[in-house]
Amino acid sequence: MPVTLETPQTRDARRASRRWGARHLIAAGLGVAGIIALIALRATTAESGPAGLPDAAQDLITLSTSVIIESLPFIVLGIALSILVQVWIPEAWLLRILPRNAWGRRAVISLFGMFLPVCECGNVPLARGLVRRGFTVPESMVFLLAAPILNPVTILTTHAAFGFDDGILVARLLGGFLIANLLGWLFSLHPEPESLLTGRFAAECRIEDGHRHGTRAEQTVDLFVRESSILMPALVIGALVAGGIQTVVPRDVLVALGSDPLFSVLAMMALAFVISVCSNVDAFFILPFASTFLPGSIVAFLVFGPIIDIKMLALMRTTYSARTLLRVTLIVALLSAVLGLVVNYVV
């Protein structure tokens, strides 16, 4: 990559160009006009009546749109918190509260979700921010895996849906914590943790080491542009695939397996994988199934779903290599299945 050396002249030129001027106002005006044009386009096309698509195609569009609309606010929140962590919070803050010892560090990191309450899709930009901020790759994974489960919103909704019945809430929280820490430990044994990342993201992190440029406002906008350009295509494609699979795979195939101790666990994990619903609300989603499915399978759904599903894999692929994700998926699937079976047979 070309390294631009800064001379006094270029620095002056850059500073001059950074000053807020008429050009910026015009550009901002164009941006506003563009947004108004989009809304106007949407308002006029809405009158055109039904599009005449076949039902299945129309439902695919409705389902995918609903995944995107549902995830959008969480993605924005995630990007905003990620900007906060990277640009506005002094580096020392985050690193100071962490214990020195590796297990302790990971344990504390897995509780970060308690005060950064984003669900799984918002976690990806945040985890990327943590890696840029000098956290190790396994530590970023611990956060990514634990935070969607160990966060106040998820705990509240799970409690609202299940109370303390059948140990579902406790198993979900403990299970999420243990799986995240175990996985973090496994990956910390990796000799070259940087190779777990995609080449692109690893390179970005190397470049950012050391120098940052621009004012904080500029960094904020830059980060927003970069994070959205990486996450939004992944989100849309993940939503399309999730919507497509839902219009094709009949639901009753999964439901038929509900009362077998082993198959119910596997079926619920398959459902969690396909449905890609947010961890903040998945408890409500699964509640109607609770009377046909065994508690262990509900726990497997609630632990596996927030960590691994179609939409999440698309989003995580922006950061981690395909091989890493395959390993993560296998390990998490195995551990959630074990957890589900333990609950089914023991509780």
């Binding site: 160009s17 050009r23 901002a28 959008l72 924005v76 906008v221």
Partner: peptide, 18 residues
């Protein structure tokens, strides 16, 4: 959140000028 996103979008477009 959509409103916040739109504000950031406008800021991004404006910053493109320099």
């Amino acid at each position: 959140m959509a409103a916040i996103a739109l504000v950031l979008v406008v800021a991004a477009v404006a910053s493109a000028a320099s």
